[in-house]
């Protein structure tokens, strides 16, 4: 099922019970798949029009009254466009706002460079206390949603709108504090997130054919990051590759590097957008253009393994 459909259905269930949930969007209710919620809960759903700054402030105001507002727009407009509103009206003021950025990075596809956020995680990650989460499939999203609501403060959810390959199943149990170890390995740690989880698993399968054992860990929450899992894995494998749908500056590669440099320095490689802007194209084209494929991950692992220790 499409991620936005899963989100809307889950929110519908939650909103029946939790009367404090407020939905606010900036002229993207249909794109976000939220139209039904606007029909069912008209008194708790708002559309501010194309005015993202106001959306963030209105949400902060609702939060100051004890409500739990969710705001929605495309990823770049949910982050870089309203960075100061998120920093001051929401985070500094300790408001409880859930920020949904739709179609991160190359998922913007044919909306192209203006809509392709290569920097959203980097923009937000340096704001104190914010939580940054990216579900990799519908089961993770579903399991995480109650946690997103109960976690006090600002939570940024980086959400791919369309259908994802399932990584988990109905039994999956989400915790903000615990990264998902998807595959045990001994030779290299592959830390991945979002769209790159599937590529990382495929890469690990490919590497296994050559007798290389890759540990794959989904870092669904880049802030606060699960340091223990990262350190434990690299202590075992001695090397790490990160794979993300974001600029390698400011995102997962940076976050994992920060953890390792302090606790367990190790040779690393990054897979992601190499400090370039986005462009139009389908996901497969963009993955290949920016080097975000399983083959690139395999190559980076081989580079590391061929390095002298």
């Amino acid at each position: 099922m499409e991620m936005r459909k899963v989100l809307a259905l889950e929110l519908q269930k939650i909103m029946q019970i939790n009367k404090y949930i407020i939905i606010i969007n900036a002229d993207l209710a249909r794109a976000a798949g939220l139209s039904d919620l606007y029909e069912i809960f008209p008194e708790r759903c708002f559309n501010v029009g194309v005015a993202e700054q106001n959306m963030a402030g209105v949400a902060a105001g609702f939060s100051s009254y004890g409500f739990i507002p969710f705001i929605f727009t495309f990823t770049p407009f949910a982050t870089r466009r309203i960075c100061d509103q998120i920093a001051i009206s929401i985070c500094y003021a300790k408001q409880n706002v859930k920020i949904f950025g739709l179609d991160p990075g190359i998922a913007a596809e044919n909306n192209g460079g203006t809509h392709m956020s290569v920097e959203d995680v980097g923009v937000l990650r340096s704001i104190p206390k914010i939580t940054i989460f990216e579900p990799c499939d519908e089961f993770q999203l579903k399991s995480a949603l109650p946690e997103v609501i109960s976690r006090d403060g600002a939570v940024y959810v980086r959400l791919f709108r369309k259908e994802c390959v399932s990584i988990f199943d109905e039994n999956y149990k989400f915790s903000f504090l615990k990264a998902d170890k998807l595959r045990e390995g001994a030779d290299v740690s592959v830390f991945c997130t979002g769209l790159m989880v599937e590529e990382s698993i495929l890469a690990a399968e490919e590497l296994a054919k050559s007798g290389i054992s890759a540990e794959v860990i989904n870092i669904h929450t880049v802030k606060p990051i699960d340091k223990e899992s990262i350190i434990a894995s690299v202590r075992k494998t001695g090397r790490a590759v990160t794979a993300e749908n974001h600029n390698i500056i400011g995102g997962l590669y940076s976050a994992v590097s920060e953890v390792l440099s302090l606790n367990c320095p190790a040779p690393m490689r990054s897979v992601g957008i190499n400090d370039e802007f986005g462009q139009v194209g389908r996901i497969q084209f963009l993955k290949s253009y920016y080097g975000m494929t399983k083959n690139v991950i395999v190559n980076k692992v081989m580079e590391l393994l061929n390095e002298k220790k």
Partner: peptide
């Protein structure tokens, strides 16, 4: 920013 917040407060 305070004005936007006030609009949210007034709606709430």
């Amino acid at each position: 920013q305070g004005f936007s917040c006030a609009v949210g407060v007034a709606l709430a």
